[in-house]
Amino acid sequence: MVRQGCKLLLESQNIIIVAEAESGEEAFRYLNEVTPDIAVVDLSMENMGGLEVISRMNMRYPEIKIIVFSMHDDPFFTQRAFKNGASGYVSKSNPPETLIEAIGHIMTGGQFISPDIAKKLAFDQYYEATAHPLKQLTSREIDIFHRLAQGKSSAQIAEDLSLSRKSISNYIGGLKKKLNADSTANLIKIAITTFKES
């Protein structure tokens, strides 16, 4: 439904949609056939997470400008997305016209952050003033942490990410150490709290 809404909005501004994808893997299959000027990427996707998609797309197709369009309005995600190669970030709580505005800025060589996130980034130098629990995690660890917050088991996460259960177990062990969780149950509680606040 979100993709359909975006498509109708963009087409109403005479923007041509060359492809749509439900996952990162599907997006890269399309990119073997078409090279868009701009890719609008959600962070919450099955299998390959949005941050990883941005990083890989930036490495393989640096000519494509990337806009994140996400429910996450936490400045952490904005910082990580730009670090991975995004040129714009728009939270879904903004009016639809904000996405059009972002595309205009980026097509002329600029960058764009939606006003709600820009205010959070500016407020008290957010990243210097707070110890965000996700700041020390890799993109892969964030993908796994997010899935724990969604209530997924290790087996389900392993299937989602095409990894072995042992690899997921190792990642979870690393997450416990980084986030000072004394059990998997405590780690899941931290994950739920973190993404509820994001």
Rank of each mutant, 00 (worst) to 15 (best):
R3E: 15
R3C: 08
Q4P: 14
K7Q: 14
E11Y: 11
S12A: 09
I16Q: 12
I16P: 11
E20T: 15
E20G: 09
E22C: 02
A27C: 11
A27Y: 02
N32Q: 11
N32L: 04
E33H: 10
V34S: 04
D37Y: 00
I38F: 08
I38W: 03
A39H: 11
E46W: 06
G49S: 07
G50S: 07
E63K: 13
I64W: 08
V68Q: 10
F69C: 03
M71R: 13
H72D: 09
D73E: 15
P75Q: 00
P75F: 00
F77H: 15
R80H: 14
A81K: 01
A81D: 01
A81F: 01
F82G: 00
G85Y: 05
G88D: 03
Y89H: 01
P95T: 09
L99M: 09
I100P: 07
A102T: 05
I103M: 12
H105Y: 14
I106N: 03
G110Q: 04
S114T: 15
I117P: 01
I117S: 00
K119M: 05
A122H: 12
Y127K: 08
Y127E: 13
E128A: 10
T130A: 01
K135F: 08
R140H: 06
E141R: 01
I142R: 05
I142S: 05
I142Q: 06
H146E: 14
R147F: 02
G151C: 12
G151Q: 13
K152R: 08
S153R: 09
Q156A: 15
E159S: 07
D160F: 04
D160Q: 10
L161Y: 02
S164T: 15
S164A: 02
K166I: 14
K166T: 15
S167C: 04
N170I: 04
I172M: 04
I172Q: 06
G173H: 08
G173A: 06
D182V: 15
S183Y: 09
A185D: 11
A185I: 04
I190D: 08
I192K: 11
T194R: 03
T194I: 03
T194F: 03
F195S: 04
